[in-house]
Amino acid sequence: MREIIRITNLEKVYDTGSVQVKALKGINFLVNEGEYVAIMGQSGSGKSTLMNILGCLDRPTSGTYLLDGEDVSSYSDDKLSWLRNKKIGFVFQSFNLISRTSSIKNVELPMIYAKVPATQRRKKAQELLEKVGLSQRMDHMPNELSGGQRQRVAIARALANDPPLILADEPTGNLDTASSVEIMELFTKLNNEGATVIIVTHEDDIAQFTKRIIRFRDGEIISDSEVKKS
């Protein structure tokens, strides 16, 4: 089984001058290819910090983080950019689509930075938007779409460079219940097709869509268990 994530003794300390805050206190876990994981915890539990590190937006203070076999702990900013581009598909709570830019252009964005030729880029973006059920909304601007539709554009964008890991940070946080279910079903579908998905959330209902839940409290993992499907 291919390891997507291997985290060993990971620590993150925020040094605010006089006070040192330990956001992550030596955590260990492993995520294999094809897993569907929820990371849960209250605000301040360290799950956002972990999310940033998993997303290669931040570096750990100590410990190692192997992403798809690469030790990213000591990578430079530009190397991390490259890694985010190739290895991670982000889905954010607030969608983070670029405003005044059409759905298809938003989906093309990661491929631009991956230097995919324009025609190929466009074709792939169309396929992805079809896959998330937005083939009729390709040229719509984000402000012309509903929250659920925007999040689906974001998911299509996350899939653009076929990353080994999809990382969603509270993907349903800004959505109503119906849209939340739609989005989670989409993640489930992607996982069934073989994608590795990690969802950071504080909602139990959402976590129940996944197959494994890792719970955080005060910078430590307090539980790591399979989800029993009823």
């Binding site: 900013d77 490259w82 985010r84 983070n96 670029i98 405003s99």
Partner: peptide, 14 residues
Amino acid sequence: REIGIRKALGARTI
């Protein structure tokens, strides 16, 4: 925000 998004999606400093 746009800059943040672009960076998250793989834009390098340059």
